[in-house]
Amino acid sequence: MFSYRHAFHAGNHADVLKHTTLIALMKYLTQKDTALTVIDTHAGAGLYRLDGDYTETSGEAQEGIFRLVSASKTPAALSASAPAATKKVAPPKTPGAAKAAADEPLAPALQDYVDLLRSLNPQFAASGDPAQLKIYPGSPFIEQQFLSGRDKLKLFELHPTDFKSLTGNIAQLGVGRQVTVACEDGFEVLKTFLPPPARRAMVLCDPSYEIKSDYARVAACMGDAVKRFATGTYVVWYPIIPRPEAHDLPRKLKTLATKAGRSWLNATLTVKSSKLTTDEAGDVKRPGLPASGMFVINPPHTLKADLQAALPQLVARLGQDRNAGFTLDHGG
């Protein structure tokens, strides 16, 4: 239960999709005068070192956030024969289009992301050298950066080591009671905070999915949340892997949103093939996480346009082979 550590995956391509979406959401939702309650059900440690043992061991950040901020251009693996792994919006289909997406100025949501990283890494901000990007914010720090004095952030984390780190990291912000941290099961405790006092809330549900039952718990948790507070914005990150539960989850979320009469948006980012390969010695190599998605119930009207601009650039910068692509679907 407590073996998963997000520090190994901090800054990977899934984080880039998740945090790009989260920043676009927070930027819009915190513009209103009414107080916003933000609930993060699986908060992690809050801050991560990209030059730490965990991140350097996995190397996943090199294929994620470092590709985004690097001056390097479109990976050569992207080719004209790339299939359109899309539904509503197509990624670049030719080398020229992919290069254009990589060369053009960053989409606003991606620029906001990079600006936030610069604010936490002064040496990176001054030099532009990706090697100086060492502090990486998890979702709690991203959420807190956008809060006004009237807003509240509630963070939950069960992993004892990550909870301790999260508590210490949040304490350094000196934000007092605006941010609360608890070592509790986010799935279970969410119901006690809905509906929120000011009737405005955003919930991020981002479990590890290391336990197969997490998929069913996410769907049940979101179904209960929508019943308790129908107008909240509910955000779910999920992995796209060869597992039935992973493919069923977005369908279940779409069904519950549709039955409740709520709008929804589903964005996915694929960076490589999910097929097993063999090395020169004949050993089977697993591809790791090839893709992930963000499902949002009651998305702001601006989110679709934000992601339409950002996703082609993420494909161009993070794609590792010709299977790279994205989807952007919505309804309600």
Score class of each variant (00 low, 15 high):
E280C: 00
A131F: 04
K93M: 14
G293Y: 03
K191A: 15
G232E: 05
L173S: 07
L204C: 05
Q145F: 13
A201Y: 02
C205G: 04
V284D: 02
S273L: 07
G46S: 09
F146Y: 15
I297N: 03
G319P: 08
K212Q: 13
G261F: 11
G64R: 00
R150T: 12
V16E: 03
F229Y: 14
P196F: 03
G96D: 14
K152F: 10
G288M: 01
P105Q: 06
A171T: 10
Y215E: 02
F146G: 03
T57I: 00
L256W: 02
L22W: 13
N121C: 05
Y48N: 03
F141T: 02
E60K: 11
G293C: 04
V175M: 10
A126C: 00
P250R: 02
Y28S: 10
C205L: 15
R150N: 07
K93H: 12
V16Y: 02
L120M: 12
K164W: 02
Q62R: 15
S208N: 08
L253R: 02
V114R: 06
P95S: 11
A219E: 08
F2T: 13
S148L: 11
P300F: 07
M202P: 04
E245Y: 11
G149F: 01
L318P: 05
L29Q: 14
P92K: 01
S273W: 08
A324S: 09
D321F: 06
A107Y: 02
I142Q: 01
P300N: 06
K275S: 14
K18R: 12
C183S: 14
D224M: 09
V315A: 08
T167C: 05
T268C: 10
K191R: 15
A7V: 04
A10F: 08
L194Q: 08
F141I: 11
D306F: 01
N121P: 04
T192A: 15
D214K: 03
F156N: 09
P312S: 10
K275A: 15
G149T: 10
T277Y: 02
G331P: 02
L117G: 05
R150A: 13
A216E: 15
L25P: 08
T192N: 14
S119L: 12
R262M: 10
A107S: 12
E245I: 04
V89A: 12
R200Q: 11
L190W: 08
R5S: 10
T231K: 15
K73Q: 12
L50G: 08
T74E: 10
E245A: 14
V203P: 10
